[in-house]
Design a protein around this nucleic acid. Structure first.
Lengths: 144, 144
DNA sequence: CTCATTGCAAACGGTTTGCACTGGT
DNA sequence: ACCAGTGCAAACCGTTTGCAATGAG
């Protein structure tokens, strides 16, 4: 599958460098979204000579090729993950723990928005903030 | 109303400085959300000696006091606006025209998320992207 | 008078750029 | 051999911090 993607890149006249292969492997093998810095640190394990600019350039490149998706978490933090499954994020504003929400949960809302406003909503990555059950408990204790 | 808010601050033992008053006025008089840099530039018109650190500290302070709300735009940018009118935004990807969506439209979704994940979602400002009816028409013409 | 708040300058962290070198094709 | 892609160092930009000075109460 990774092999398939690299072939795809080659077919379009792009080069497969060790850096690109290593970064792609890191992103594919991660089950969560990664910040560029995380990608850098993980990739460095198998390719110690990699540099941050290369990571940024490669991530931007992959995103432009549709191999990875970019999502904006809160506070301006950019995260990357393997393309493919469309989902949204639910982030706890206390402990920062984040959960994935399947896109299907938003579809009724999008439909309703289309009917009431005429807009065809197509946001693929929406980040919602709230309190996770655990932090909600703690907060109630403090208040009482 | 601004007067009411400053009284509220005073009652809590906080000081009303010209900087705070000016920044509060800027945010209240704006009909859209502002980035910290925008707040800085607008406030400087009436108070040229204000500095950026003061703007950042004051915005954080206002947010902690509930006078302004912080919102995450879809692109990860932090924006501030006067507290009170809770609404979301629907932005056209093509023409950038934006529409306000009443918060009530999201409540069923929040309720559903709470039931399925346990998270108490409280995002007060969510930005959705899509195509407005006008740009959708144009797009169809181009495609055909 | 006191202490919260400010201005200044400098530090910060994540991201981007210019440029010469390297290595994939 | 050619040029896309890299490493390095330095610039960048929005934001934050330490500290001494100021001014609101």
């Amino acid at each position: 599958m990774s092999h398939h993607l690299t072939q795809q890149l080659q077919a379009q006249g792009h080069r497969i460098t060790p850096q690109r292969a290593a970064i792609l492997r890191v992103i594919e093998q991660s089950d969560k979204h990664l910040t560029p810095v995380e990608v850098y640190q993980l990739t460095k394990k198998s390719l110690p000579e990699i540099t941050e600019p290369t990571v940024y350039r490669t991530l931007t490149f992959f995103a432009s090729q549709g191999l990875v998706m970019v999502a904006h978490m809160g506070n301006g933090q950019l995260v990357y993950e393997a393309a493919g499954h469309e989902h949204h994020h639910l982030v706890c504003r206390e402990c920062n723990y984040s959960l994935e929400i399947d896109h299907s949960i938003l579809e009724p809302l999008y439909q309703q928005l289309k009917e009431s406003t005429g807009y065809e909503v197509d946001s693929i990555h929406v980040t919602f903030f709230g309190l996770c059950p655990h932090c909600r408990e703690n907060q109630e204790e403090v208040e009482s």
